[in-house]
Design a protein around this nucleic acid. Structure first.
Lengths: 163, 163
DNA sequence: AGATTAGTTCGTTTAATTACGAACTAAGTG
DNA sequence: CACTTAGTTCGTAATTAAACGAACTAATCT
């Protein structure tokens, strides 16, 4: 691996890893591993290569790779006559992330509804004053939900073609 | 405060608090305080009331209220001849949250661009295969950015009228 | 001025995550 | 059948975040 590629790779793993940590609530190590696989080829990356690049202990790598597999973010392939596993991002990983996001939007919509009901009942003055603002926000959530649903659909359709 | 109101309030503080914790990355206590103020009247809530409702120590309440003030999520009013402060959500708190969210979308777009450049250069096969999927995602981010920007604008316009 | 109220500051404790290392298993190799 | 390879398991250590309590300040009240 060229020196400049490696430097760029490590820097991107930090940046992207942190982002994944925040967005998907994975441990720092799991996030870095996931980031590495996003930045790696289709051929997959071996356990040893992950360990070398991320510079963490065998046990931590093992645990975190298995978490990522369990959650469906990554998979691995094996090659005949080769005991190693070659890790790579799961085919549907981007759809998976969006589906999780969709759930969180639905959850937020439910909570916002309960807040509105509560304030309507117990703080009617506030509720009236905030009504328009609340409507704007509710509208925003609905449009966002719609956008995410459409994107999931588009991605699923694309995946079907790709075989 | 009626028994059923209080029960509902406490339950909503838990639910909403957890949501705020995740979305705004505030400490559990700060999130609960913020949740309480979202569910309280315009008149504001005293330090003591916060303490009673949230059931945490004076010092923790103090620290976390000040964090929320610093970040701009809450403010307080004072009443003549009354040393107490009455805490309430800041007028622009919902816009503020959206602005922070907008920044995180912009950040994600930058990272996605760098990932694409990296994979294009070092894993061309993967890049070509993922291109359409990448376009769908990039499109999604752009639309989401647009939606958030519009919502901020709508809210700001509404706020101007309200005086 | 002494006492009370409202809130702050700071050093410590608690609790939870995260990662580690050493010992282990299971499969393949010479 | 001993040996290496690939990865796992489990008890432990390190780090970090979060909350606490006691002592303090600054304003007001009597």
């Amino acid at each position: 691996m060229s020196k400049s590629k490696n430097k760029e790779l490590l820097e991107l793993i930090e940046k992207l890893g942190f982002d994944i940590e925040e967005r998907l609530r994975l441990s720092p190590l799991a996030s870095r591993i996931y980031a590495l696989l996003i930045l790696s080829s289709y051929d997959g990356v071996t356990f040893e290569e992950v360990k070398e690049t991320i510079k963490a202990s065998k046990s931590s790598i093992s645990v975190n790779i298995n978490v990522l597999i369990q959650l469906g973010y990554i998979t691995f392939i094996t090659k005949p006559g080769d005991r190693k596993r070659y890790f790579k991002i799961a085919k549907y990983s981007s759809i998976l992330s969006l589906e999780i996001y969709l759930q969180s939007i639905d959850n937020e919509m439910k909570i916002v509804n309960r807040i509105n009901k509560f304030n309507q009942e117990y703080h009617p003055e506030k509720y009236i004053n905030e009504k328009s603002l609340g409507n704007i926000f509710q509208n925003y959530l609905e449009q966002k939900e719609q956008l995410v649903k459409e994107t999931i659909l588009k991605m699923s359709n694309f995946r079907k073609l790709d075989k």
